[in-house]
Nucleic acid binder design. Structure first.
Lengths: 164, 164
DNA sequence: ACTCATTGTTGTAGTATGCAATACTTCGCA
DNA sequence: TGCGAAGTATTGCATACTACAACAATGAGT
């Protein structure tokens, strides 16, 4: 009877790890599909950049790099490409001539909207297929897991660590 | 009272999506840390390659590329680098001179072991911090979620889609 | 005005990735 | 047996992501 003890035994850990890995794989697959659906125009790092711009509004290069956890040079060149494609807009700041403000273009917002919509739709579809009991427990259990890992809830967190 | 109806309403979907995104973020962070701990020698795609070799045993280039979902040229060049580092071994097949068999070196196995151990340890630590009720429900709920998404359990699945 | 921190870009380099072309090997069939 | 088709790996070429270091332009404080 390994399960009734208050402490965790090896079986528990293995089972949980397996479950976690499996769920993670599914999430990654959903993510990949939702981005692939945006056409061949956008890569995954580029999408992360767009999401940050969408949720945080216009940003300076340095702030963007910080949020994406990349160096300013990386951010600068990614922006180069996205400006060329037409999803990001570069404008000199009105307050400081060395700052450059980055913002999504209407096209950029459209890309984010499409990918996000598809992702939520896929998750909703999966959730709706779950047995009722499991579905009702999902939010509580996942929240507890995230809290135990020190991760703030999605609704209150900076989007820099946004889903792969 | 939106929650007692059998069908899912928008609130459910939003709550679940948020919970899922949050948990996913945590998993990605754990993954990144576990690989970073292997030193600066190994990148994430390289680690995936090592895991595939470890779990599937020696492979041809073509099979490896298939499992990693990359083109043969990509696999070939990744192997180039890993051979140079000394974690992968290239040998001509004994049965067909056009095939080349790839395998982990002892060093390669060591890297995989270290990263995997650290990852399981981190997950175990997080799980141990969860409230008892949530922890006991975690396996069932995540399993149901993965099944609803059509993902086979980790213990019975090919490792090619291994955790990011 | 001079110095120094801030901000962005560019040079250089290594990894990841795909498509197309190439070289070598094996197999099947005439 | 010999030739063409298919399999297998590699290389050439192109693009993206990434970092570090050097540099240029700007702004702030003394």
């Amino acid at each position: 009877m390994p399960r009734s003890s208050p402490a965790l035994d090896a079986t528990d850990v293995d089972a949980v790890t397996d479950a976690v890995l499996t769920a993670s794989r599914l999430l990654v697959a959903v993510s990949a599909r939702s981005i692939a659906a945006a056409g061949d125009t956008i890569t995954l790092p580029q999408f992360r950049l767009l999401v940050v711009l969408q949720t945080r509004g216009p940003l300076k290069h340095a702030d963007l790099a910080e949020l994406l956890q990349v160096t300013p040079s990386t951010a600068s060149r990614m922006v180069d490409r996205l400006v060329t494609v037409g999803v990001v807009d570069r404008q000199h700041s009105t307050v400081s001539r060395r700052e450059i403000v980055l913002a999504l273009t209407p096209d950029g917002r459209k890309v984010v909207r499409q990918v996000t919509a598809r992702r939520r739709k896929e998750i909703a579809k999966i959730v709706s297929r779950m047995p009722d009991e499991a579905r009702h427990g999902l939010v509580d259990v996942l929240t507890a897991f995230a809290e135990a890992g020190g991760e703030p809830p999605a609704s209150a967190v900076a989007p820099e660590a946004v889903w792969t």
